[in-house]
Design a protein around this nucleic acid. Structure first.
Length: 612
RNA sequence: GGCUCCGUAGCUCAGCUGGAUAGAGCAACUGACUUCUAAUCAGUAGGUCGGAGGUUCGAAUCCUCCCGGAGUCACCA
């Protein structure tokens, strides 16, 4: 049992008896005692003294006296202003340490909190994954583990954006320029091959556009628009050019129409190229160590989305404009009107999201659904959630958008069009290369087989990358400096892993019996107390991370725990402790720390190496 | 312009449901490896918590206004 609830129970009973005062747990503000004062936990008495109408210092003394007599866990206390500093008993430290023989017990009060569908990847099929996707994926993966630990049944999904203009561009470029190049013939990973043709298309279009700019038609358009600078105008006009004048644009649109009508050759090409892309994605997901329970495809869900819009129209939740387009009016919830279906009956972005949501409910009957998607889509999800509410979807109150900030590079914003992106596969290869050279410098894995060695290196490398991305509050835009991000010292994943590896190393050496009774260990020291105090917060930190959809709390907690262990390790001998009792206590303590570190890192999606 | 998010050490980030003298890492400097593996530890230095008001026993934290940055407000996704 945690000291906070133990103490709160005692004190609230006392205050009720003595003052007729009804108190709630929020009236009891505990914190670890600051270093400069004597004690382990501090109760901030101001809120209570205000309620009891007593001087803070007097009440603090009174409560301290009461606890000292009535709690086996309180040895002594002192009062500084309105702060009651409590010194805990040996029994508290022992009981607490023993409670970590089974971490699960700390989570035991969790009930089944219902089914949560978690969408944490939504790739487009026209280009490979990049650093932004990695942040997205790692956040979602960690969240899925944290939510599951806190009592949810989690269903992990992705939505693949496999239709539309973008993929047609890749298809057309491949058809025109690829000479039937395949992943096999080129040695290129499937998603990179498709990405290559997406870029080639854009280059071809730019060339076509440049030529066009010198035609009479272009001159006429420019003059009609009445702009000043020709260059600036044509930069802005490119998209419209694509839609109105471009021959390539016309071909792409033709292809899109063929696709929608199921023209066999186009469908065959589409399937062929998608299969390459999916193989590529799967490889990247595999390297990151993530998977999905179910994959949804836009091409399967957008039709249902249209149906839902029609149904909403019948129920007069939506309305139709003269041109046949369908809209929803969200002014009742402070937003404006939003298009749900184009005049020609084709779907827009939100249409398929409506369909996907419905299909997921048909598949899983979930109570909650969380989308891990970048904050550029905040408005889209506000609208989507409101529309789902209007449609009366049963899970509509359980919707959440985990909106994370963009990842910037030292050179500025990542822009795929300008080639200023960090490719996911390249990045993973790079961290592994860094870790490999680091290991070969240090040595220490000589007795490992090549496979074991590679696996350890992989864990260290991925640990560095994942921890780096997860230790930052998801909401915040973050800067990714490739050099620092591959760091393995200081506030990093490998630092946390190293604490674990140190413990494992000790445990390998301590083979003789160390099972002396820890009750005979009377001199529990500061570092030991700090470690136990920290670990007692573990389950609460996980719950906070779950509630706030924010793994960074957990990551920072684990760093703190590892840091405290490193200091403890340095200050005190474990295998060669001063007494058999001290040794026994420290071995148990080290095992507990290792267990918490391993469990917590697993919730971040980070595996522990055996050696480093 | 409206709305949303962000602003803490030179850099990257914690702390934000109000609590004691604001913390880490990196970079800089000093020291600790015949020791349970130094991917570690100890220390020095580094701050007007964007600014101004307000709320109160107490504000980095809550409220208002202002400044700066980003995103969004598409029959794009």
């Amino acid at each position: 049992m945690h000291f906070y609830s133990h103490t709160t129970t005692l004190l609230s009973a006392y205050l009720e008896d003595e003052y007729g005062l009804k108190t709630q747990s929020k009236d009891y503000s505990f914190q670890p005692t600051r270093k400069e004062f004597e004690g382990n936990y501090t109760l901030v008495v101001f809120p209570l003294s205000a309620k009891a109408k007593k001087k803070p210092e007097d009440l603090a003394k009174e409560l301290g006296d009461y606890l000292q007599i009535h709690s086996d866990y309180v040895d002594a206390y002192n009062v500084v202003k309105g702060f009651l500093n409590i010194t805990l008993s040996l029994q508290f430290w022992r009981d607490s340490l023993l409670s970590f023989e089974d971490i699960e017990l700390h989570f035991q009060h969790q009930d089944n909190k219902g089914k949560l569908v978690l969408e944490y990847s939504s790739p487009n099929t026209n280009k490979p994954l990049h650093l932004g996707h990695i942040r997205n994926i790692l956040l979602g993966w960690s969240l899925s583990k944290i939510k599951a630990r806190c009592g949810h049944k989690v269903i992990k999904t992705q939505i693949v954006n496999d239709r539309g203009v973008a993929i047609c561009k890749s298809m057309l470029a491949w058809k025109k320029f690829a000479d039937r190049e395949t992943p096999e013939s080129s040695g290129l990973k499937g998603d990179h091959l498709i990405g290559k043709y997406y870029v080639i298309f854009d280059q071809a279009l730019s060339e076509e556009y440049t030529v066009w700019q010198n035609t009479d038609i272009a001159e006429k358009v420019f003059n009609e628009k009445g702009e000043d600078i020709k260059e600036a105008f044509f930069k802005k006009y490119k998209n419209q050019y694509f839609n109105e004048y471009s021959a390539l644009g016309a071909e792409v649109r033709k292809m899109l129409i063929d696709w929608e009508q199921g023209e066999p050759e186009t469908i065959a090409l589409w399937k062929q190229m998608n299969s390459w892309v999916y193989a590529g994605f799967d490889e990247t997901y595999g390297k990151l160590g993530v998977d999905f329970d179910k994959t949804y495809y836009e091409s399967d869900t957008y039709q249902l989305g249209k149906k839902l819009v029609d149904q909403g129209l019948e129920k007069q939740l939506f309305y139709k404009k003269a041109d046949g387009s369908v809209w929803v009016d969200l002014s009742d919830v402070g937003m404006d009107e939003k298009l749900l279906l184009r005049g020609d009956g084709t779907s827009v972005y939100i249409t398929q999201d409506l369909g996907t949501a419905r299909i997921r409910h048909e598949d899983f009957s979930m109570h909650y659904m969380t989308y891990v998607v970048g904050n550029e889509q905040d408005y889209h999800f506000k609208v989507l959630f409101e529309v789902l509410k209007k449609l009366g979807e049963p899970y509509a109150d359980g919707l959440f958008h985990l909106s994370y900030g963009m990842v910037d590079l030292p050179s500025g914003k990542m822009k795929s069009r300008e080639g200023n992106v960090v490719d996911a596969d390249d990045l993973i290869a790079e961290v592994i290369a860094t870790a490999t050279s680091s290991v070969s410098e240090r040595g220490g894995m000589e007795d490992f087989s090549e496979e074991e060695k590679a696996e350890n290196i992989r864990r260290i490398a991925l640990g560095a990358l994942k921890f780096h991305l997860l230790r930052v509050n998801p909401r915040k835009r973050m800067l990714f400096n490739p050099e620092e991000s591959l760091d393995m010292q200081g506030h990093t994943g490998p630092y946390v892993q190293n604490a674990y590896v140190r413990i494992k190393s000790i445990l390998r050496k301590v083979v003789e019996d160390f099972d002396a009774d820890i009750a005979d260990y009377l001199d529990v020291n500061t570092e030991e107390k700090e470690l136990i105090t920290l670990m007692l917060d573990y389950s609460k930190v996980v719950e906070t991370s779950a509630a706030e959809h924010d793994p960074s709390h957990l990551a920072n907690f684990l760093y703190q725990l590892a840091k405290t262990y490193h200091r403890f390790y340095h200050e005190h001998h474990i295998a060669k402790a001063e007494s058999i009792y001290a040794k026994s206590f420290r071995i148990k303590l080290s095992k507990a720390v290792a267990a918490v570190l391993e469990d917590g890192m697993d919730l971040l999606g980070i595996a522990m190496p055996e050696r480093m």
